[in-house]
Design a protein around this nucleic acid. Structure first.
Lengths: 135, 135
DNA sequence: CTGAATCCGCTCGGATACTG
DNA sequence: CAGTATCCGAGCGGATTCAG
């Protein structure tokens, strides 16, 4: 695992050897654009967390609220609507009384799993690092 | 690669089988916190892109500006300062005339490489998908 | 060349109250 | 239960100008 990371880093560094900084930047434009594209979809404090929950299955609106205690209903419904528009989430209404609404990821939404995992892993590592420093 | 993704997704789904949504959410709190932690470090429109450039080596302030044509000097220096405070980036001043300043990642900064790669990959895939749909 | 200083609009996101 | 409506503050980020 760590070796893999080393390899990735070395790949970046070796890429650089025979190029000037400006050449590198030029060849790297598309990657930056790609990052920007991802950020456009996933921006904000909540979207990634919502997707992360939904990776685990189908959840009701109120269940999501319990998973994200600090989110206001306004934000939750707003974010869900955007995620639905981007075809990452499917909203399903059950015609019962009282109403029941569930959310789950589309297949496309599940393509974000690796990203979610990286976010989670790095966050955990970061927290450990902070803890150590404080002691 | 795609098989690996399938395996990851299945891992999520099978995890769910014998648990209620609320149990899942409860057990999942720490992961959400981790995601939040990462977002706190990487939030905003520019930080990830700056780190992505610096993955390729050492760059001067003006080179970074060329890599991110739309960033204002204010933002660039502000973001770099925060990244430096978080020990992701090292700032180095050369005592020449005119001054020369370079930025590069710390070893800790390089731990973000996998995340950067995922952001890039997903962004590229997403763009292809959008293109197809529009035709 | 590498920023710092100032001004400002906008949108993100929180709080609260209310509805079918 | 699953949202909507309304109000509001903070800060993100852009534009421009200036300085060491």
């Amino acid at each position: 695992m760590d070796k893999e990371l080393q390899a990735q880093i070395e790949a970046f560094k070796s890429y650089r050897i025979d190029k000037s900084p400006l050449e590198i930047i030029e060849h790297y434009r598309k990657d930056l654009q790609a990052i920007q594209d991802t950020l456009d979809i996933a921006a904000g404090r909540w979207k990634m967390q919502i997707i992360a929950i939904l990776c685990n299955g189908e959840f009701r609106y109120s269940e999501l609220q319990k998973g994200l205690p600090k989110i206001s209903p306004r934000m939750l419904s707003k974010e869900l609507k955007i995620l639905e528009q981007n075809e990452l989430v499917i909203r399903k209404v059950y015609d019962t009384i009282p109403v029941k609404v569930t959310y789950r990821l589309t297949d496309y939404g599940y393509t974000l799993v690796p990203l979610i995992l990286e976010l989670t892993n790095w966050g955990k590592m970061h927290r450990e690092r902070i803890m150590k420093k404080e002691q």
